[in-house]
C-alpha cells in the first residue's frame, strides 16, 4: 500500500504521529512474525488492531512498547526511535500486556502491583503523590476496595483490571492494550468501555488489540488488520464476515450497553477486501 492510498489518519492529519511504525520486520528465532508493517497512530485516535490468532498482533504491540527488538525497519514513539532507548519518553506511554503475569512467586498486593506502573527512568525516584494516584487508578477500574488484597487471590478478570490500572496510574498519553477484554465478564466489559470513552474524551490516544470489538465498537476511529504478519487493512472498521452479519447480530448491537447482559455478546468476525494486499 503506498502512502497516497492511506486514509486520512486521526482527528488531525497534520499532527505528528504519537506512534510511527515503518517497514517493521520482527523475527523471533527462525520465524518471521511481522513483515513490512507500516502504520501510524495520531494524537486522539482510537485504533483497533485486529486479526486472527497468530497474525502477529501481540508481537506488534510488544515491539512498539519496547519489549521486543525490531529486526528491521523503525518504530518511533513520540517521535523518538526506539533504538535510542534512553531518550524515549516512556512515561508518556502505558502498556497493558495480555493477561497471565499479574502474580509472581511472592505475594504482592493490588496496590503494590499498580504502584510499579509509576516507575520511570532508572527506577530510583519515587512519585510523591503515588498513593493518591494508585487509588485513583484503582477507582477507574472499580477495584478501589481491593487495594490491599493479594493479587493472586483475585479472579482472572479482576487481575486483568489490575493490569489496566497499572497502566492508567502513569496517566499516559498513549495507551497500548493487548486483548483487555479477554476473559472479562460483560458487566466489566461495559464498565471498561465507559472508562475508555472517558479517556478518549480526555484526549488519550489508544491502540488496542481485540478479537471482538464488543462494547468498544462505537469508540473505534480506525482499524488495522493483520494477516500473516502483514497489514491487510488500514481504515474504517471493515464489514463483518459472513455468518457474523445476520440480523440478530446487528440487533444485539443496537441495544444500549447496559442491556448487553441479557445475551452473549458475539464476535465481530471481519471481512477484509483483498485489494489492500501488496
Amino acid at each position: 500500500m503506498s502512502q497516497q492510498d492511506c486514509p486520512p489518519a486521526g482527528d488531525d492529519p497534520a499532527a505528528a504521529p504519537v506512534l510511527d511504525v515503518s517497514q517493521l520486520d520482527v523475527a523471533i528465532g527462525a520465524s518471521r512474525i511481522l513483515r513490512d508493517v507500516t502504520f501510524a497512530v495520531r494524537p486522539g485516535e482510537f485504533v483497533a488492531l485486529l486479526g486472527a490468532n497468530g497474525s502477529g498482533k501481540s508481537t506488534l504491540v510488544r515491539t512498539v512498547v519496547g519489549v521486543l527488538p525490531a529486526t528491521a525497519g523503525r518504530v518511533r514513539l513520540f517521535g523518538v526511535d526506539l533504538t535510542e532507548r534512553r531518550h524515549v519518553p516512556w512515561h508518556r506511554a502505558g502498556y497493558v500486556p495480555q493477561r497471565s503475569t499479574a502474580s509472581a512467586g511472592v505475594p504482592a498486593t493490588v496496590a503494590e502491583v499498580v504502584a510499579s506502573g509509576l516507575l520511570t527512568g532508572v527506577g530510583f525516584r519515587r512519585t510523591p503523590d503515588g498513593a493518591d494516584r494508585v487509588r485513583h487508578a484503582l477507582e477507574q477500574v472499580g477495584l478501589a476496595d481491593r487495594a490491599r488484597s493479594a493479587v493472586a487471590t483475585l479472579s482472572g478478570g479482576q487481575q486483568q483490571r489490575v493490569l489496566i490500572a497499572r497502566a492508567l496510574v502513569r496517566d499516559p498519553e498513549l495507551l497500548v492494550l493487548d486483548e483487555p477484554l479477554a476473559g472479562v465478564d460483560s458487566a466489566s466489559q461495559t464498565a471498561f468501555a465507559t472508562t475508555m470513552a472517558r479517556l478518549r474524551d480526555r484526549g488519550v490516544t489508544v491502540l488496542v488489540v481485540l478479537h471482538e470489538t464488543g462494547p468498544l465498537a462505537p469508540l473505534i476511529s480506525r482499524t488495522v488488520v493483520l494477516r500473516h504478519g502483514r497489514v491487510v487493512h488500514d481504515g474504517p472498521p471493515p464489514p463483518a464476515a459472513p455468518g457474523n452479519d445476520d440480523a440478530e447480530h446487528h440487533h444485539q448491537h443496537a441495544h444500549a450497553p447496559d442491556e448487553g447482559a441479557d445475551g452473549q455478546h458475539r464476535a465481530h468476525a471481519l471481512r477484509v477486501e483483498p485489494g489492500g494486499l501488496p
Partner: peptide, 17 residues
C-alpha cells in the same frame, strides 16, 4: 521499587523504560 517491578513482570518493566 525497581527490583520489585523487574522481578514481578520483566516484560512490563521493559515497557516502563
Amino acid at each position: 521499587p525497581a527490583l520489585f517491578a523487574v522481578s514481578q513482570d520483566e516484560e512490563y518493566a521493559r515497557s516502563l523504560g
